[in-house]
């Protein structure tokens, strides 16, 4: 007997914890909605629903647990109802239930839906079962059509938007690696800058290189053109000296 009582207490304690968690989550959600509705980040707000559903799953798991059946055999018997304000009850419920009245108790201890709601549910169930297969199929098709239409509008809008942002980012390149290399080699080694040499192109590689640079006829793979090179450079240097802006 004592063991069962203990078990019941533990189960109740667990349920209470879960319900409190759920209550806190809902409170946070409402506060957020009331105080930050102008600046709220909706995607993170949606995460709150995920938290709520997590708590609900936890709660239902406890209720489904094998410890739960003992709860079924426990009876709650309302002994006395009254219209007077019960301070203790108000404190326990954080001011939501000031008195154990005839108005509230049926709702609080309800195990079945309200008769009105039950009736409407039955009506709807009846309507659904009597619906012909063709009509149902038709309605489903119509609904699918509407949804796919909305989907199309949204995806077209997204495409336009993304295309625009792509275009503003610049589809055409703003730099060229070949140009970078040409410029850096020109400034670094004088490739394409030497007087009397054709601009950058095939066959003029050797003069750009450090050790093989300049008029050293015995070096470099471009041997056939080398004997000419020294004289060409010399005359050009002279010519350059004459118009040289540094010369005084």
């Amino acid at each position: 007997m004592q063991r069962e009582e203990k078990q019941l207490e533990a189960t109740l304690h667990a349920i209470l914890n879960r319900v409190n968690d759920l209550k806190a989550a809902i409170q946070a959600l409402i506060t957020k909605l009331e105080t930050e509705y102008e600046t709220i980040n909706w995607p993170t707000f949606l995460d709150n629903y995920a938290i709520l559903s997590g708590h609900l799953t936890g709660l239902s798991k406890i209720l489904q647990n094998e410890l739960a059946p003992s709860l079924r055999s426990v009876v709650v018997l309302p002994l006395q109802l009254g219209c007077e304000r019960d301070e203790e009850l108000a404190r326990l419920t954080e001011g939501r239930v000031p008195a154990c009245t005839h108005d509230l108790v049926p709702d609080l201890l309800r195990t079945k839906p309200e008769p009105q709601a039950e009736q409407r549910l039955q009506q709807l169930n009846h309507k659904a079962s009597t619906l012909s297969y063709d009509t149902a199929q038709k309605q489903v098709a119509q609904f699918t059509k509407v949804v796919s239409h909305v989907w199309e509008i949204i995806s077209k809008g997204r495409e336009d938007w993304e295309g625009e942002s792509m275009r503003s980012a610049g589809i055409q390149p703003t730099h060229s690696i070949a140009d970078t290399h040409a410029l850096v080699t020109a400034v670094g080694t004088g490739k394409g800058l030497r007087p009397g040499m054709p601009p950058i192109g095939p066959g003029v590689g050797t003069p750009g290189m450090g050790p093989t640079r300049g008029p050293t006829p015995q070096m470099g793979p471009a041997a056939p053109t080398m004997p000419k090179a020294p004289s060409a450079i010399k005359t050009n240097i002279k010519a350059a000296n004459q118009i040289h802006p540094y010369q005084r």
């Binding site: 703003t174 730099h175 690696i177 080699t185 080694t189 490739k191 590689g205 050797t206 290189m209 450090g210």
Partner: peptide
């Protein structure tokens, strides 16, 4: 970036590559 790609460039090696 991506306007300009600033990099370490070894012009000596580039020179060799073109030879």
């Amino acid at each position: 970036r991506p306007l300009v790609q600033l990099d370490k460039i070894d012009y000596k090696r580039l020179g060799h590559m073109s030879v």
